[in-house]
Amino acid sequence: QDPLLRTAHLGRRLRFYGALESVNACAFSADCQHLLTASDDSRLFLWNAKTGELLCKVTGHAGPVKDCRFSPDCALFASASHDCTVRVWDTATAECIHVLEGHCKSVETVRFSPDARQLLSGGWDHMAILWDTQLGQMLRLFSGHRDVIESCDFSLNTQYLATGSWDRTVKVWSLCTDGDNTLEGHQGNVSCVCFSASGMLASGSWDKTVRIWNPCSGVLIFLLEGHSSWVKSVSFSRDGLLLATAGYSESVGNPSRGSKLYWQVMLDQASSCIFSPDGALLVSGAAAQDEQLQEGKRETWRTV
């Protein structure tokens, strides 16, 4: 049976089967109509988020697709790949509009600005690049990290950028000035960063912790402990009151601060998680098909 065509309702869950290898990232469109997944088989999959129907298999990258995101207006989506490029696609046609070349090594992360006019990417070359999404041109280069940039995000007011690196730091960059603020404290590679609607910044690490920061002052607000292995993905709900974390965990402990709401066993290690824009759904991607029985964990935390 073709795994690209299978969907299954399991209780209140809807499973999307398609990638032949690990799912590296998931993204909802702002109108909650579409779901995008990126995987190691060099493809993206565009789904009907309500029914689980596969709408399109998107090809063009020459290597594993490491990250993907929709633009806030749903008109575009972007992908970052091991082939050293970022691609911008038209959502309606799934046609590639721009191939953004500037990174010299694998691109690990990509994010749209809230107004959809800019795109941020980072990767193995220790650089973050700001792009113009309409012209497909490089606007600004951010350097300062000493190792791989695995994650990035825009603040809601578009005044700040955040990058998480294997040098164990998070950098907060100002788009109004040339300054940056380095957040230190993680004891392992920083694998994911995410701004909340209120301006808080969450970072997840190989040190098995999630840290919640005031990004401007650099003050640590919460230290969340519970994963038994490295944290791969973090996502705030739209109102900023919930934080979901996905990790390569075999067991779940108790957080030292913050309040954990629940956790759920998934197929294999959970590699990504993201809330839908309306906050009603949480999607997570895993590395296994349903025949495999290894366990991964998804956790959701209350941040206030």
Rank of each mutant, 00 (worst) to 15 (best):
L5F: 11
R15Q: 08
F16D: 13
A19Q: 15
A27G: 12
A30P: 14
T37P: 15
A38N: 04
D40R: 06
S42K: 07
C56A: 07
A62K: 03
C68H: 04
R69E: 15
L76F: 10
A80Q: 14
H82I: 13
T85H: 09
T85I: 07
V88S: 09
V88C: 12
D90R: 07
T91H: 03
K105D: 14
K105A: 13
S106A: 13
V107T: 09
V107D: 14
T109I: 09
R111G: 13
P114I: 03
L120V: 12
S121A: 05
W131N: 08
L135M: 04
Q137Y: 04
H145Y: 03
I149T: 07
I149E: 11
L156V: 14
L156H: 10
Q159W: 06
G164E: 09
S165A: 05
W166P: 00
W166R: 00
R168G: 01
W173P: 00
S174P: 02
C176Q: 03
T177Q: 00
D178R: 04
H186I: 08
N189C: 05
S196T: 01
G199F: 02
L201F: 01
A202K: 00
S203I: 04
G204L: 00
W206H: 01
W206P: 02
K208P: 02
K208G: 00
W213N: 00
I221A: 00
S228G: 08
S229C: 06
S229M: 11
F236C: 01
E250W: 02
V252Q: 04
K260C: 13
L261C: 14
W263P: 02
V265D: 15
L267T: 04
F275A: 00
P277Q: 05
P277W: 07
E291R: 05
E295Q: 09
G296N: 11
K297V: 11
R298K: 15
E299S: 06
